[in-house]
């Protein structure tokens, strides 16, 4: 599930070397790491730049990246970019935040009561596997075209991965750990608090990270369908007004937003699961 590629540890030189040479080696090593980590992105940007210039693709529909960046800069200077980003962030984060507050406790409860979990699981799987976007018209019909329906659809879409991951987290806690706590005569509530809950944290975080990606996706679609501001609106209206460079500027902003959001969640996840053996590293 790791979304960041960790660089392998640098190999220290075996023979003792003079400090300057060592520093030089280290700098070279760091440069090599930086190269490995950025080369694919650089290559992609180069293709984006060169393909329209070489007329391999129509530069009207895909302007070179060197023309998109100034458009992005103009949007940022006029304040449009920030106001749209802010509107999108408020929607995505409210829906996402509410889904955590709702789905984690609910999932803990459902997972704890095995019969309830068995009863509800088929229904939950059905909901999860119904693309949330398909329900967007329903949300608009019921809640109107304002903020409520947008936040609600994000909340709805984010709930399922968190809920299902939390339920399975509680249900798959190592039975030996539970047995060990039980052998001390701890009451069920204490076992839940001291064993089940901490053991479930990594899996709950996986659900939260999945939901983070989904929140951005659903928010954009909801804004494209009907909104007066937001990044989805910016992209959609730019396309309709044939402001192609602005459209790409909006897409770049969403990439950056998605990356930053995921990075924050990854850092939070690490912070809370430091005790774990990390197979990704």
């Amino acid at each position: 599930m790791a979304s960041t590629v960790e660089a392998p540890a640098l190999i220290e030189p075996e023979a003792p070397e003079s400090p300057p040479r060592r520093a030089g080696r280290r700098a070279a090593g760091l440069a090599a790491v930086a190269f490995r980590r950025t080369i694919a992105v650089v290559a992609f940007l180069a293709v984006w730049e060169l393909a329209p210039r070489a007329q391999l693709v129509d530069p009207i529909f895909l302007p070179p990246v060197s023309e998109v960046v100034p458009a992005l800069w103009d949007l940022a200077k006029s304040g449009q970019l920030w106001s749209n980003t802010e509107a999108s962030l408020v929607r995505a984060l409210s829906g996402f935040g509410l889904s955590i507050v709702l789905a984690v406790p609910l999932g803990l409860l459902i997972g704890w009561y095995r019969p309830v979990a068995e009863l509800l699981n088929p229904l939950l799987e059905l909901f999860r596997n119904t693309a949330a976007i398909a329900l967007l018209p329903v949300f608009i019909l019921v809640l109107g075209i304002g903020e409520t329906s947008k936040i609600a659809i994000v909340l709805y879409a984010c709930t399922w991965p968190i809920l299902l991951n939390t339920i399975s987290a509680v249900r798959t806690v190592d039975a030996t750990l539970v047995k060990s706590a039980r052998s001390l005569g701890l009451p069920a509530v204490r076992i839940f608090q001291k064993v089940i809950l901490p053991a479930a944290v990594p899996s709950i975080f996986t659900g939260i990270r999945l939901a983070g990606g989904i929140s951005v996706l659903v928010m954009i679609v909801a804004e494209m369908v009907g909104a007066k501001e937001g990044l989805g609106f910016l992209i959609g209206s730019a396309q309709q007004n044939f402001a192609i460079k602005d459209m790409y500027a909006g897409i770049l902003t969403i990439s950056a937003l998605g990356l930053a959001f995921n990075q924050v969640l990854v850092l939070l996840e690490r912070r809370f699961t430091r005790w774990r053996t990390d197979p990704g590293r």
Binding site: D174, L177, S180, S183, L184, A199, V201, R276
Partner: peptide, 20 residues
């Protein structure tokens, strides 16, 4: 009649809490 602190169990699989 049930588990209590007058007995302790040591398991083959250690059963240590990995987050502690």
């Amino acid at each position: 009649t049930g588990p209590a602190l007058d007995r302790a169990v040591v398991f083959q699989q250690y059963a240590l809490f990995p987050w502690r």
